[in-house]
Computed example of a mutant assay.
Amino acid sequence: MKSSSSSSSKLFTIGLVAAWYSSNIGVLLLNKYLLSNYGFKYPIFLTMCHMTACSLLSYIAIAWMKMVPMQTIRSRVQFFKISALSLIFCASVVSGNVSLKYLPVSFNQAIGATTPFFTAVFAYLMTFKREAWLTYITLIPVVTGVIIASGGEPSFHLFGFIMCIGATAARALKSVVQGILLSSEGEKLNSMNLLLYMAPIAVVFLLPATLLMEDNVVGITLALARDDVKIVWYLIFNSALAYFVNLTNFLVTKHTSALTLQVLGNAKGAVAVVVSILIFKNPVSVTGMLGYSLTVFGVILYSEAKKRSK
């Protein structure tokens, strides 16, 4: 009896990881398709659609389906902290989506793999937290790999590269700031509750940015929908998938360890690269792939070094 329950829980975990991978890679590929292949050149509006879906679906999952207990915001200070996190989160998602207009997914993922480097830098600058010297040494191949990949990238675009670096840095900054801001027991929120509060605040930030920077986007989208109704389904599916990424990430974290999540995350980037090259057929050079492989190898070494220093 015990072995059947352990095998079913193992199957459940495998299913969760598969759902996390497919939703993660699905959002990335669909974003790329919409923003560069389909010609829907509105990354801020696309991010706003994602955040709107995350607001609605988070509320349904927590308030109606009771997937996790609802946690309340305790004070005005905590609200401002969540708002600051939301702003950084917006910056990372918008920059990432903008970069997908100009860069292939494979190169985008190579740059994204440098997150540990930025996390270590921000942790040191903001909390004076020093890692073991060996941990810092493992960051050398992480950065070197991206420099090599950039030199060997046939579709290199400077503005797209800057946006992607900005997105990666903002993602790392969010994780460090989150650790600082919501570290006290009374203020800790699980990731599903944090998304429930962050997503609507993100919509408030993104709405004026969309109206100011993406002129008449709603009118253009409606006109597009009249010509091709598929755009509406693409946007709805893409936005729901963006929430599903956060939901499956939370569930995988809950059912596995943080270390397993790190290892799976590293592998996910490599899977995304292979899938995107197969789908979009973007040219890749041997130098680019060597650079990316070096970065992933560096991230694995970094994870090992962090584990040993604890």
Rank of each mutant, 00 (worst) to 15 (best):
L278C: 08
I201W: 11
V229H: 01
F297A: 13
G145W: 03
G15T: 11
P141W: 05
Y59S: 09
A149Q: 03
Y124R: 06
V143M: 14
D227A: 06
L301A: 09
E131C: 05
S285F: 02
A113W: 00
I44Q: 00
D215K: 10
M65K: 14
P200S: 13
F280P: 07
S55L: 10
T119R: 07
Y42L: 02
Q109E: 14
A167L: 09
V176C: 06
Y33M: 07
S6G: 01
T52Q: 04
G291K: 05
S92W: 10
S293W: 00
I88Y: 01
K174V: 09
I25H: 02
A240D: 05
G151Q: 12
T221P: 05
T168A: 06
S95P: 07
T115G: 04
N97Y: 00
V218C: 08
Q262M: 11
M198F: 03
E131S: 13
H157Q: 14
V252F: 06
K129W: 03
V204M: 14
M198N: 12
S106C: 04
V275T: 06
I180C: 06
V98R: 03
L29P: 04
V204H: 04
M289K: 02
S183Y: 10
L290C: 12
V203M: 12
N37L: 01
M65T: 10
T144Y: 09
S99Y: 00
I148S: 05
W233F: 14
V245S: 05
K41Q: 15
A120Y: 13
L259G: 07
F80C: 11
N97W: 03
K310D: 11
Y136T: 13
I25D: 04
V143T: 14
V245K: 08
H157V: 03
S58Q: 00
W233K: 00
V274D: 00
S106F: 00
K281A: 14
V93Q: 15
G269W: 08
F89S: 06
S303Q: 07
G179M: 11
S55N: 01
Y38V: 03
A61R: 01
T138R: 07
L134R: 09
A18W: 05
L222H: 07
H157A: 09
F40T: 10
L207A: 15
I88D: 04
V284L: 11
K174G: 02
S293E: 00
Y102P: 06
A91W: 03
A172R: 08
L261V: 15
K307S: 07
V68I: 09
L261N: 12
S155K: 10
G186T: 10
F79M: 14
V203S: 01
S285G: 15
F12H: 13
R226E: 14
T256I: 14
S239W: 11
P69F: 12
